[in-house]
Structure formats: C-alpha cells, structure tokens
Simulated assay, not measured.
Amino acid sequence: MAETKKRHWFKTIKKILLWLFVAQFVYIIILRWVNPPFTVTQLVSLVKGQGLKRDYVSYNEMSANAKLAVMAGEDQLFPDHNGFDIKSIKLAMKYNKKHPNKIRGASTISQQVAKNVFLWQGGGFFRKGLEVYFTFMIETFWSKERILQMYLNVAEMGEGIYGIQAASKAYFNKDAINLTRGEAAQIAAALPNPVRFTVKPVSRFVAFRSANILRQMANLEPDPDVQQLIK
C-alpha cells in the first residue's frame, strides 16, 4: 500500500513539473510579442509602498539615444554575444576573489532581462542557475531588438520607476522618443543602483558616470551591428 502511494505521488510530481515546464516555455514564447503583466520586482515595489510608475512603449517609441546609452553603460558587446560575456565574467570572478567586500557583476543586458522578467532580485546559486536557463531561452527565441526593448521597458530606473518611458516622464517631462544623448546617458548611468544613484537631483555618481557613457556612446555608434539595433 505504501509503495503504491509513493508511485502515485511520484507520478503526480512528474506531471506537475511537466506542466510547469510547458507553462514557462509557452510564457517565454508569448512574451516575444506581448509585454509581461507584472514582474516580481514590480510587485515587491508595490508591497513596500514605493509605488509603480510604468508605461510600456514600442521599440520605435524609444529614442535611439536610450538604446545606445544602455548598451554603452551596461553591455557594449550586446549585439555580438549569445547572452553571456565570458571575458567579463572571468574578469569579475578574478576581481571578486581579490576584493570580497566589493563584489563586481558581469551581467549582460540579456541576463538582466532574464532576471527582471522571470525571476527575483538577489543572488544564490539556484537563482543564478535559473537566470542562465532563461537567458539561453530568450536569446534562442527572441530577437536582439526584443531583448533590448524588454530591458528598456522593465528595468528599474528609480524608486518605483520602471522603464524608459516612465523615467523620461519623471525626470525630464518628455516621452522616451525625445530623450537627448545627455538625458539618456544620465538614466543609463543610474542603472547599477537607481534608488541610490539619483537622476533628479543628479547625484555625483550619475554626473561622473554619464560623462563616461557619452564617450562610450560616441565610440560604439559607428559599429554596423549597433547601428542596426538603434535605428
């Protein structure tokens, strides 16, 4: 009798896991065209009382300056890699061994989308493992344009502010399509910690980093693969 119950529970668990796998796969495919109704990070923001300012916009409603700025600031190899920047990961691991109190990340835009859309903030091997899986999946089934669009729509860009359109309205009182190079660079400069590093008023970190991002934007812009993404 006990053995029969074990087999029953084993089959039930297998069915549940199978349905969960199918459901997440279908969800990934749907999000190739449809924006997520919410993310875990956005829900946490609401629960904490930080509010939720969010307004999804299409790829064509995003300034080329915004697309270029986040690549310059967050992931300069985005057009070319398959979701992972192995060189940067190795450098970060080497740095973190020498500076355990100053952890440096090496997440690509694709990895950040995987985390922001499907997972939760924080670390841990389990979450990192899931991040690798979802990064592989979106790189396989989405286009680079869709990944960049999703990043610019769901990334936290201030306390309770998510996406480039909400950030543009909050900081510069304009639509994302009209962002100047300097404005886009300031928003991109805050991305490592948009609650701590403020765009309005401009923090010292954002002022310093945005100047560097502007220089990197000028270096990246002529690249044909970058041009294909920002047009």
Rank of each mutant, 00 (worst) to 15 (best):
V132Y: 14
F134Q: 03
I177E: 12
E61F: 05
A170N: 12
V195P: 00
Y171M: 09
G105C: 07
R196P: 02
T12V: 13
A185D: 01
K115D: 00
G73R: 00
I187T: 09
M71C: 06
G123M: 10
V117H: 04
A64F: 07
Y171A: 06
K90H: 12
A72W: 00
I164K: 01
W142A: 03
M217I: 04
W9A: 11
L229F: 09
R204S: 13
Y27K: 12
K231E: 13
I16Y: 10
S88K: 14
N35G: 06
D55T: 10
A23E: 04
M217W: 01
L119V: 10
L20G: 15
V113N: 02
L43G: 10
F38W: 13
T140M: 13
K14W: 09
L68P: 00
R32F: 10
F78V: 03
M137F: 08
T41P: 00
D55N: 14
A66L: 07
I86L: 15
G83L: 02
K174N: 07
V40H: 08
F134E: 02
Q121K: 14
K231C: 07
E221D: 10
K87L: 15
Y56W: 14
F126K: 11
G105D: 02
E139A: 03
I147D: 00
R127D: 05
T39R: 05
S203N: 05
N65Y: 04
F197Y: 15
N178Y: 14
N60T: 11
P192Q: 10
F126H: 08
I28W: 00
